[in-house]
Design a protein around this nucleic acid. Structure first.
Length: 492
RNA sequence: GGCCCCAUCGUCUAACGGUUAGGACAGCGGCUUUUCAAGCCGUUAAUAGGGGUUCGAUUCCCCUUGGGGCUACCA
């Protein structure tokens, strides 16, 4: 019987969650859901120098906003504070420093790691020489031959040191990547990686490997940038006599120019997308399909549907360009098709400052719904219809070759008709249309030379929603005022 | 430079030896229409190149080319 799936997303709190991180988190979570396993959030904060205050909170909150809630690990407590949940903690990596240290000492004892007293300058110099000679830049293993006794004496004397892995000198390693198949490295290519820094903290390689083991992680799903350090991790597993997890290295997310996704070429922070009014479910949907697709002929999936279909073996190997235009389309689809109530609720914060008339606000929100790609578009789209009046250039009121006088006649007729309408008519786009079309027919007018001037009068714009929708959204008072204003502009 | 990974329309992808190489975004054209948006219909566009293997290669193998990642006491 297969082991229960346990996966983790393990970001370091050095900044905001970016779009690639969201995808890694999602794929981990989807695998857990798919196999009724456990999704764990671990925070990798071993590098004290790079910690950003508040980053952990932001990470957990953003993940949650996107619907990714860990079953175990670092969580958001009901009071909004960061907390932990689960039996295999702590899940803040810095709190495991002692455990890492113990593992490192064991490795030293068994000859799989050693103390290194080389200074930063020594290393830099050696590296420069290697570079100048056109050689690969790796630690030259000066301290590898030191006896443990000698090393311990220097440690006790207070010499600063790090602990390095004693990577095998010959042979090779290979592993089966769930996405890429067999990947092999010559040990000769692998550096004697530092696993304990001079500040006593473990580096990523030791910390994440030990923690993955202690937390019984079954699948390590992470970015492709980790593929070349996997041999080091494998060496730790092997040296500690642990069974390594399954590895799956995800393809990178790329900028439009196919370089690794970065700031400066557009937004990468999930929070920024959220702040712009991209919907979490659209973002999740979008990111899920960057590098994976269950069928290839469908674009819109709920979180549950993604989880039901997820398959690591079907994840692509090549990097994927983040195409914001497609995100825009996808988000627009969600905006158009979500429940009316939910849409109005989401739109309202963007409109509240522009009007106090909530009924009017909702009508305008519905008026512009088809034009909204992201929620932050709403104020600009809506504002012309929330004001009482709007400037109209009288030149654009007549339709095609229509004269000003003729347009004025139409507007006057429409205005008169509108004043006589009952309440019920104003509350139905369909009824408004019927009334106006009857008026046009009765007078022997045409749609164009009546509806165009009316629409421009109501919107102030060459392009806008239909006059019927506008009348409905604006309501009687605004509509009449606007038509009257346009009529006056034409006749004076 | 060294090692590793990758390669289907501009972009995201489907096709796990046999398809007129499919879908989506973007583009273009049309329908609808008072305009725009939405919607619907249609359309342009791809297997990087060269060798193999095979009755048959997008698919398997090799080489070339191109792109990317790693090469820290960062993750």
């Amino acid at each position: 019987m297969a082991k229960t799936v346990r996966v983790r997303f393990a970001p370091s709190p050095t900044g905001f969650l970016h779009i690639g991180g969201l995808r890694s988190a999602l794929y981990n979570e989807l695998l857990a859901r798919r196999h009724k396993g456990t999704f764990i959030l671990r925070i990798e904060d071993t590098d004290q120098a790079r910690l950003v205050p508040g980053a952990t909170e932001a990470l957990v909150r953003t993940l949650k906003a996107c619907g990714l809630v860990p079953d175990e690990g670092v969580i958001l407590k009901p009071n909004g504070e960061v907390g932990e949940k689960g039996d295999l903690g702590p899940y803040m990596q810095s709190k495991r420093a002692d455990m890492h240290r113990t593992y490192a000492d064991k490795l030293v004892k068994s000859g799989k790691a050693y103390h290194c007293f080389c200074t930063e300058r020594d290393l830099l110099k050696a590296r420069e020489e290697q570079q100048a000679a056109g050689l690969p830049t790796r630690y030259n293993r000066t301290c590898r031959g030191l006896s443990i006794e000698h090393a311990m004496r220097r440690v006790e004397a207070g010499d600063p040191y790090v602990i390095r892995l004693a990577i095998p000198l010959k042979g090779s390693v290979s592993f089966k990547d769930e996405i890429r198949g067999d990947v092999a490295f010559d040990w000769k290519q692998v550096d004697d990686q530092v696993i304990i820094k001079s500040d006593g903290m473990a580096t990523y390689h030791l910390a994440s490997t030990c923690d993955d083991h202690d937390m019984k992680i079954t699948h390590v799903i992470r970015g492709e940038e980790w593929i070349s350090s996997t041999p080091k991790h494998l060496f730790i597993y092997e040296s500690s006599k642990w069974t390594p997890p399954t590895f799956a290295h995800l393809p990178l997310l790329l900028n439009a120019d196919r370089t690794k996704l970065s700031k400066r070429q557009g937004d990468v922070a999930v929070e920024d997308y959220l702040a712009k009014g991209y919907l979490p479910e659209a973002l999740l949907n979008f990111v899920a399909l960057l590098g994976w697709n269950p069928t290839g002929d469908r674009e819109i999936y709920t979180h549950d549907e993604l989880a039901a279909a997820f398959d690591l073996a079907k994840v692509n190997k090549s990097g994927a360009v983040v195409n914001v235009e497609k995100l825009d389309w996808l988000n627009g689809q969600y905006v158009k098709t979500m429940d009316r109530e939910r849409y109005l609720e989401l739109a309202s914060p963007y409109l509240r400052e522009l009007t106090v008339d909530t009924a009017h606000m909702d009508r305008v929100a519905m008026l512009i719904r088809d034009r909204v790609t992201k929620l932050s578009d709403i104020p600009e789209l809506a504002s012309p219809y929330l004001k009482m009046m709007v400037d109209v250039d009288q030149i654009i009121i007549p339709w095609k070759s229509q004269t000003k006088e003729d347009a004025a006649v139409r507007l006057y007729g429409v205005m008169h008709a509108l004043t006589t309408l009952d309440h019920a008519t104003w509350h139905s786009i369909q009824n408004l249309e019927t009334v106006l079309k009857d008026l046009i027919e009765k007078n022997g007018w045409t749609n164009g030379d009546t509806l165009w001037p009316l629409r421009v009068a109501l919107s102030g714009q060459k392009q806008s929603p239909s006059p019927f929708e506008l009348l409905y959204a604006l309501g009687r008072e605004r509509s009449l005022a606007r038509v009257e204003q346009a009529h006056r502009a034409l006749t004076t």
